[in-house]
């Protein structure tokens, strides 16, 4: 099939950037979306033009590197799917596809479709961990954890840190990302010790990094490739309220 692409091209952080029209020819429905872009890039290189730069790595939906807004939806039209796992059979001949980078103040564009997600790093660094020393820890079965809690922690821990939640949020808020981490540790006895400090540090960090406030639109859950639930945001709010009672 043949497609018309409108791809965001931006030379660097200072460049205003614009959508450029490109043609994708002879695309097989078995290709992944990124393989389609690979093909477009091969053509561009042979024509002596600059290939589109985009972030990607594992191409199996787990590393969280790929980050494109396709026709207005982060990671594209298929639910619970990263761009790298999106296949061209979701499109049809003659389609027009708009490809844009994540847009949020906290995620400045580096080039074309690549954004800087260091703000997420800083949120985790502010408290997204359990302060366990290497060695000197108790036997793994010394702390019993109810299956339900272990499962909830795992549901929350599935976050791949791609940033689609921020990209989709009308406010550029990172609440789903922070809430998943807060929840994972808050429901585990190992993590409960630092829960109060953690939730407050992570909340302050979000603000400092330029993320917006949560307006409970729930766009984040709708685009999350791992189906992280907004109920974790409620959990974060509960943890915050609990932290007020000193």
């Amino acid at each position: 099939m043949n497609l018309t692409l409108f791809v965001w091209r931006q030379k660097g952080p200072e460049d205003p950037g614009r959508l450029k029209q490109l043609e994708a020819r002879d695309i097989s429905p078995d290709m992944s979306f990124l393989e389609m872009l690979d093909l477009v890039n091969e053509d561009l290189i042979k024509q002596g033009r600059d290939p589109i730069v985009f972030d990607h790595d594992c191409r199996e939906g787990i590393c969280g590197t790929c980050s494109q807004v396709i026709n207005g939806v982060p990671h594209g039209p298929e639910e619970r799917t990263t761009v790298c796992q999106l296949h061209m059979r979701n499109f049809k001949d003659g389609d027009t596809i708009y490809i844009e980078p994540w847009k949020a103040k906290a995620f400045p564009v580096i080039k074309d479709l690549i954004v800087d997600r260091n703000a997420f790093e800083h949120i985790i660094q502010s408290g997204g961990y359990i302060s366990a020393h290497t060695g000197g820890v108790p036997d793994a079965n010394a702390i019993l954890i109810a299956k339900h809690d272990a499962d909830t922690a795992m549901d929350a821990a599935e976050c791949i840190g791609c940033g689609a939640c921020v990209a989709a949020c009308p406010n550029g808020s990172a609440m789903l990302f922070a809430a998943a981490k807060v929840t994972q540790f808050a429901v585990l006895p190992q993590g409960a010790v630092e829960a109060k400090k953690r939730v407050n540090s992570m909340i302050s960090s979000m603000k400092k990094e330029g993320f917006g406030n949560c307006s409970n639109h729930y766009e984040c859950q709708a685009v999350c490739p791992k189906g992280i639930k907004v109920s974790f945001i409620a959990k974060l709010n509960r943890e915050f309220i609990a932290s007020l009672k000193t």
């Binding site: 807004v69 026709n71 844009e100 949020a104 009308p170 917006g212 639109h217 859950q221």
Partner: peptide
């Protein structure tokens, strides 16, 4: 604050869960 955190919008806009009311 929210506006400041989202200075640019997408060329194609699509809401999946957000409503007229919420926006």
């Amino acid at each position: 604050e929210n506006r400041a955190s989202k200075p640019d919008t997408y060329a194609v806009k699509k809401s999946l869960r957000a409503t007229t009311a919420s926006r």
